[in-house]
Design a binder for these strands. Structure first.
Lengths: 250, 250
DNA sequence: CGTATCGTTGAAGCCAGTCAAAATGGGTGG
DNA sequence: CCACCCATTTTGACTGGCTTCAACGATACG
């Protein structure tokens, strides 16, 4: 599936819309991310109001929901799946500036344009809100704004930490750091294998490297016995301490 | 002055403390950044309350106010001067993750530790608040939290845009982009010369380059007639269009 | 089983880093 | 005002790590 696939609005299926429309309070009550998303500590009545302006949407891997530079019309909670945030230079060089998971918030509230594109890496489900309506609701609900602030502050910390990687780490350290990051973010299976949500090209776009350099560094880590590869996307970290010391530059 | 100079608490002089202590509402009324800082649209009474928990502090260039990894005990408004936010690897490689100017907000509210160091690049003046007290005040004043959210969202956008530079631009594009950024941030004099708040080493630390590479790129831009140098810190941009096209990769 | 996509490997070149030395300029004291 | 000093910046020569270009191998899917 090509990564530049267009996001077909017709494919944003309002899923199982209830009589009172929106996500429907009854759906929120059984929402998978209910107590981790920003709407978590809203009163039941407020949640009902918020639900009324929301719509569920289903995305296939590769679909883009928002484009860099477009006017900001939508924000959303991620219910399921993994998505990338990316920016590009005029001549097509891409940098992934963030990877978001279930319960994360996407889009640019309180701003007129979208600073980066948002693209599904896996099949995904969102709870979409029109930005204007969301902004209005948020301004009237300090508890929601507070959670949004907390989340934004955390994002900023993570993003700034990543700047150190991009600006000052070498290829070996970059790859090791990413694998450790994935270890914290992605659930491992019984054998301790984690399924990377990123292709080699996407790893390169996160780390500011080329796909060939990523491949060589991964192969080198495998040769040393620090990691083991399981198919294309699977990685098992065999020696966490050594990987950590490699990530920090020995 | 060594950049690792310790921040001597004794040097945080409570300036002209008025009878009612704090910054003193009467000082806020003539505060230089009064209508640009986050406290801008507070009611007079709320501002008085906030002032009561604030203290003015004076910094000399090179002094560090907050250290990466320390527990977060202070936040502040920048009243005057320029400061850098930076993180480092264990072996001492540094990355500047942000540069802040008058009216900007620094520190990590609603978090237990400081994710980056904050160091004065020029002499500076701050309006300091104990974090706990500030957090409490902010939670009770949605208008303040909203401004803080807006600011944090803007910071995040800028930071992510910088990731594209760090990960995907070459040395020439990096230097050109920085000069254009400085053009927007720093006031030029009558001849159009801007006084950079950063040394060559600091420019290197912002761009993820070495000082030698920065110097060579600056020299090359001068040779082409795109910029002119005035002393060590002064730069005049002679051909903005060309600099912009260089920043975007021709 | 065939094929398109993705990932790996190899060889060569180049950009930025490293190490070393010279030049500049801002500040100080005579 | 000038000479001197020291930190900063520039310049030069060389190295090396990452990219580029190309071909090959593996894997998932119809």
């Amino acid at each position: 599936m090509p990564m530049d696939m267009q996001f077909d609005l017709a494919q944003i299926a309002p899923v199982k819309t209830a009589p009172d429309a929106g996500c429907g309070a009854q759906y929120c009550d059984r929402c998978e991310v209910r107590d981790r998303a920003i709407c978590a500590d809203l009163e039941a009545t407020d949640r009902t109001t918020l639900n009324r302006i929301g719509r569920r949407a289903v995305l296939k891997a590769g679909q883009t929901v928002m484009w860099e530079g477009d006017s900001s019309t939508l924000v959303a909670n991620v219910i399921e799946g993994t998505l990338k945030l990316s920016t590009s230079t005029a001549d097509g060089r891409e940098q992934i500036v963030g990877v978001v998971y279930a319960s994360d918030f996407i889009g640019r509230p309180f701003g007129s344009y979208t600073p980066h594109s948002v693209t599904a890496l896996t099949d995904a489900r969102l709870c979409l809100y029109p930005r204007g309506a969301f902004d209005g609701f948020a301004r009237e609900h300090p508890a929601l704004e507070h959670r949004l602030l907390q989340r934004t502050l955390d994002d900023l910390d993570r993003t700034r930490a990543w700047m150190l990687l991009l600006g000052r780490k070498n290829a070996r350290e970059k790859v090791a750091t990413l694998l450790l990051d994935m270890r914290n973010r992605v659930q491992a299976d019984a054998q301790g294998t984690i399924e990377l949500p990123l292709s080699r090209q996407q790893i390169a776009d996160v780390l500011g490297l080329t796909i060939e350099t990523v491949s060589r560094q991964v192969t080198e880590l495998k040769r040393k016995g620090v990691i083991a590869l399981v198919g294309r996307r699977g990685v098992r970290i065999c020696d966490v301490e050594q990987l950590e010391s490699i990530a920090e530059g020995e």
